[in-house]
Computed example of a mutant assay.
Amino acid sequence: MILSERPPLHRPLGEPARHDPPKGDDMHKITPFLWFDTQAEEAMHFYVSIFRNAKVGTITRYGDAGPGPKGSVMTASFELDGQPFTALNGGPQFTFTEAISFLVNCADQAEVDDLWDKLSEGGTKGPCGWLKDRFGVSWQIVPSVLMELLNDPDPEKSRRVMEAMLQMTRIEITKLRAAYDG
């Protein structure tokens, strides 16, 4: 007798995760929702102009019920490299912090440099590949090779890579590799 046809809430180690296919119009289950004061549309266009595989979605405007001025942008949806985002003009009550950031894995130094320069323009450059863009959103711009080097089984190599990275603002692959090679 079958008591339940639902899959278990956990899976044994080594068993691949199962993913249900998207429903509807390629719907994502989780979408980052970004709260802006009044810059949702401006931010959407800024981000879409930076990422190669990006597109503008829909813009929803406030109506008679508000709470924003009638006709002003309420939400703006967009997509960056297949990841949907929604930006809301919700007012000045909330601002962004570094507690949430978007990690961008880059294929090479050219991509790191391009995204770093564009996203940090008008923002703040931080340590270890972190930056805040001109809207206050935090990003981590890192080469994919970083995790490979940090996870090397030789603890001395990974220690040297970590120490090198901690000295950087923009991550530089040649310096990471030099530290790795000792």
Rank of each mutant, 00 (worst) to 15 (best):
S4Q: 10
S4D: 08
P8K: 14
H10A: 12
H10I: 14
R11E: 08
P21C: 05
D26C: 14
K29Y: 11
T31P: 07
F33P: 04
A40S: 00
Y47A: 02
S49N: 13
F51L: 03
R52C: 10
R52T: 08
A54V: 00
A54I: 00
T60R: 15
R61C: 06
Y62C: 06
G68V: 03
G68K: 03
E79C: 10
G90F: 02
G91D: 03
P92V: 04
Q93D: 04
F94Q: 11
F96D: 14
T97P: 12
E98D: 15
F102I: 15
A107Q: 12
A110G: 10
E111N: 09
L115K: 08
S120H: 08
K125Q: 12
P127L: 10
P127N: 09
C128R: 02
G129F: 05
G129I: 02
W130F: 07
D133N: 04
R134S: 02
F135I: 09
G136W: 00
G136T: 04
Q140I: 07
S144K: 07
V145N: 03
V145Y: 03
E148I: 00
L149V: 07
L149E: 04
D154W: 05
A164I: 08
E172T: 06
R177V: 13
A178S: 04
G182R: 14
